[in-house]
Write a protein that binds this DNA or RNA. Structure first.
Lengths: 231, 231
DNA sequence: TAGATTGTTAATCGATTAACAATC
DNA sequence: TAGATTGTTAATCGATTAACAATC
């Protein structure tokens, strides 16, 4: 466990690092677009909004891709991070729930500049099925299993109302999809080995409210408003 | 620093706990809707998707709101968490960038069941200004400062393209808004004391892709595709 | 060689978890 | 009293950070 093979570093990049790699990637791509060839950890870290020690530690998990005294070659680092994240292959994505949010996502072009392809849009509402959204025909939710198989979908995005989200997740899992991005405000129950990430607007707002209240001096805290003391 | 006052526990709830309180709150509200009066840490934790030791530790930061041998009274815990999160007051929210996503958010009714009120919608596009979205007239971005002042906006939501996001953030900050929720795929630069949270679809997808690739046995890893070796 | 910057070490900090005494 | 469940302790784990030797 403590032996250190020379190059193909031990698997197991820390989760916190994985979550920052996309930010570094995006920052590097912006540098690349501006024609920058080389960047130091200090400059890249500052552009990505992290501290440079953290950046270097993060990158060290991928390998030794920098040059001491010089920095990192932008193009090479873009490629290495893309590869590590699995963006050198194409991931087919299905979106279920074509309401406002589903349509917004379907129409959102730049999925991290590449790596993801929206392969199917599904909805339960007969009035929505058959409509054309973002150059795709909306299919009926009942075809989920077929669509997953035929289109090779490996990532499912859930933008249904909360009440339907669990059923959709279960069907995704049954169809062999083990990566799910959930926008519905509900905790999904899935078997081990299925990866669920959630995006939740109201949770984010509530966290902001907590800090804002803290900043505002927490006025009104401590005194319980009449009628809510309990029981 | 190590003295322990008896009740009004020391301020400073861990960030990880703050991020979970909204999940507990939502779970409790669902229990309340089903008429449940009391819940054990075991049952609540399981419904919220965390382990019960973590839940009890989290709640212990708020105070001693449970009863040994019995559990937690749902109604009381809902109130205490709401109060801690600052949801017993009303937060006015302004959304800037009324594209697909901005409209989706504006039309999204249930902002955590209450606590937040969309007070203004702003856009830079003259064709959008004046249109009615979610019972509000879309205003011009140039009125941001006035709107923030007049409507008492304290939370700013940015759903503009990446290129405009920083400018909007700077104007929000200048207008006195120090809580920002950013949907634009760009790192925002703000002064200390301003709280920025980001919601980023492509980052989430990239994290999913990383794990999916890992599960799939990482095929294709190691061999560098011709033409991308570097330089 | 002198200057710059990486990659790594080690210290510190914060989060998670099992276990259990306190107590309803 | 016996059974159940909280609140807290303490061990462990993972993440962050400063500092600096290695090295371009």
């Amino acid at each position: 466990m403590t032996s250190r093979p020379p190059r193909p570093r031990e698997r197991g990049i820390p989760e916190a690092t994985v979550a920052r790699l996309p930010v570094y990637l995006r920052t590097l791509q912006a540098l690349q677009d501006r024609g920058t060839l080389t960047v130091s950890s200090e400059d890249l870290a500052s552009a990505a909004g992290v501290n440079s020690a953290k950046l270097r530690k993060d990158l060290s998990h991928l390998g030794s891709y920098g040059t001491r005294g010089v920095g990192y070659e932008v193009r090479y680092l873009v490629y290495q991070i893309s590869r590590e994240l699995g963006l050198t292959q194409d991931w087919a994505v299905a979106i279920v729930g074509i309401g406002n949010l589903g349509r917004a996502l379907a129409n959102y072009g730049g999925f991290g500049t590449r790596g993801f392809r929206i392969a199917a849009l599904l909805d339960a509402d007969p009035a929505m099925v058959g409509r054309r959204v973002a150059s795709l025909d909306v299919g009926h939710i009942d075809t989920l299993e077929t669509v997953v198989r035929d289109k090779g979908v490996s990532i499912g995005v859930i933008t249904t109302p909360a009440a339907s989200a669990q059923a959709v997740a279960t069907r995704f899992v049954g169809a062999g999809v083990s990566s799910i991005l959930n926008f519905a405000p509900v905790v999904l129950n899935v078997p081990d080995g299925v990866d669920v990430r959630k995006v939740d607007l109201s949770i984010e707002l509530q966290i902001l409210a907590f800090h804002a209240q803290r900043r505002n001096g927490d006025e009104g805290h401590g005194a319980e408003p009449a009628g809510l003391e309990l029981t």
